[in-house]
Design a protein around this nucleic acid. Structure first.
Length: 333
DNA sequence: AATTGAATCAACCGCACGGAC
DNA sequence: GGTCCGTGCGGTTGATTCAAT
C-alpha cells in the first residue's frame, strides 16, 4: 500500500495561480496566518488547491520581502561559495540571501550560474578533474600538473578553499550542516559535499575532499590518484565498515566501476584507525584520470602539492583548523 | 512572418524527517 | 518502539518566452 495522498487530487486545481487565487491566499494568511496547518488552509481560505501548493506559492511569491529579478554579483559570489561548500542545499543557501527563495536560487543556478562558472574556467583548465564517480561517465579525464594551477581563475580557488579540518577527535566539531551524513565511523568522518558530484559531472575542476586521516604516502597509478583516503587500495575498507555503496560512489571510496581496479590507488593512511586520526589535521582531495594516453601530470608535482597541503595554506587547499570561528565563518560566507 | 530549438522558471512530485499519538 | 501525518526539501517537468534561422 502506498502513502496516502496529502489531498484529494481529483478536486484540486493545478497549474499557474490566478491573481484571484493569489489574493485569496494572501488575504487569508495575512489575516489568520497559516495556523501551522497547510493541509487545512486551502479549504479555510476557499481555495481549490493542495496545501503544499499553497505553501509553495506563499513562500516563493506572495510572502513579504520577496526579491525578484537580477541577482547581484555579490549574490553570485555567495551562491558559488556556498555551493562549493555545501552543495545543492538550496534552502541553506537561500537563508544567506535575504529575499531569495530556494526555488529561485536553484533555478538560477541551473540555468545561469552553472554556465557562468564553466565559462570562467578556461577549457584548458577543465582538464583538472576528479574521477567520474560513475561507471557511465566517459573515462576521458586527466590531471593538470600543479605547475599550471596558479593560472586558475580566482573563483576556482574560492570554490576549493572551503574545508574545515578538525584538529583532533576530541574536539571534532564539524561545521553545522556541512558534515556528510553517513554510516562512516567517527574515525573516518568525511567532510565533503555534493559539489563534488557536480564537479565530477561537469568536468569542472579538482574537488577537495577531507578525510581526517593523515597523508602518509603516495601511491599513484596510471589512471587515478586519490589521496587522503583511509581506504585500502582494493576498496575493502569501506565495505568492511559498512559504507553504503552510493556513499562510496559519491565520496570516492569506491568509484563505481573501478572496484578492484588496479588503476585506482589510494594515497594516505591505508589502514586508518582512531589514534592516527586523532592527530589528523590534513586536507586532502582526489584527482582522476582514466585515459592512459592523456595524463600529463608528474609525480613530483603531486608530492609538492600534498606536502604543501599538510603544512598550512596552499593554492588548492586551505586548512582553517587553526583559525577562529569567525575566521572560519568568513571562509564560508 | 513562421518555425524551431533553447532558455527560463513556476509548479509539481516524491521522499525524508520529525513530531504527535 | 511503531505508525501516522504534516512539513520541508531537492529534483524534475512542462508551459511559456525568447532568440535564431
Amino acid at each position: 500500500m502506498g502513502r496516502a495522498p496529502c489531498c484529494d487530487k481529483a478536486n484540486v486545481k493545478k497549474g499557474p495561480w490566478s491573481p484571484e487565487e493569489d489574493s485569496k491566499l494572501k488575504e487569508y494568511i495575512e489575516k489568520y496566518g497559516t495556523g501551522g496547518n497547510w493541509i487545512a488552509l486551502p479549504q479555510k481560505a476557499g481555495l481549490k488547491r493542495c496545501g503544499k501548493s499553497c505553501r509553495l506559492r506563499w513562500l516563493n511569491y506572495l510572502r513579504p520581502n520577496i526579491k525578484h529579478g537580477e541577482f547581484s554579483d555579490e549574490e553570485d559570489r555567495i551562491i558559488f561559495s556556498l555551493f562549493a561548500t555545501i552543495g545543492s542545499r538550496w534552502s541553506i543557501i537561500a537563508a544567506q540571501l535575504p529575499g531569495r527563495t530556494d526555488n529561485d536560487i536553484k533555478n538560477y543556478w541551473n540555468t545561469k550560474l552553472k554556465k557562468k562558472l564553466m565559462g570562467m574556467i578556461p577549457p584548458s583548465q577543465r582538464k583538472l578533474m576528479i574521477p567520474p564517480f560513475s561507471s557511465s561517465t566517459p573515462n576521458n579525464y586527466q590531471i593538470t600538473p600543479s605547475s599550471q594551477l596558479s593560472s586558475l581563475p580566482s573563483l576556482y580557488r574560492d570554490c576549493t578553499a572551503s574545508f574545515y579540518s578538525p584538529p583532533s577527535s576530541n574536539n571534532r566539531q564539524p561545521i553545522p550542516g556541512l558534515e556528510f551524513s553517513s554510516s562512516l565511523p567517527s574515525s573516518t568522518t568525511l567532510l565533503t559535499d555534493s559539489s563534488s558530484l557536480f564537479q565530477a559531472q561537469e568536468g569542472g575542476f579538482l574537488c577537495p575532499i577531507q578525510y581526517d586521516s593523515p597523508v602518509k604516502d603516495i601511491n599513484i597509478s596510471n589512471n587515478m590518484l586519490v589521496f587522503g583516503s583511509s581506504e585500502r587500495s582494493d576498496c575493502s575498507y569501506g565495505r568492511e565498515i559498512g559504507v553504503k555503496q552510493e556513499e562510496m560512489d559519491f565520496q570516492g571510496y569506491i568509484p563505481n566501476g573501478f572496484e578492484g581496479n588496479n588503476n585506482v590507488q589510494r594515497v594516505g593512511s591505508s589502514y586508518s584507525n582512531s589514534s592516527s586520526c586523532d592527530n589528523a589535521n590534513h586536507l586532502s582531495g582526489c584527482f582522476g584520470g582514466n585515459d592512459n594516453s592523456v595524463l600529463d601530470y608528474d609525480l613530483e608535482d603531486v608530492k609538492r602539492l600534498i606536502s604543501s597541503n599538510s603544512s598550512s595554506n596552499s593554492l588548492l587547499f586551505t586548512d582553517v583548523s587553526n583559525k577562529t570561528e569567525d575566521q572560519r565563518a568568513l571562509y564560508y560566507f
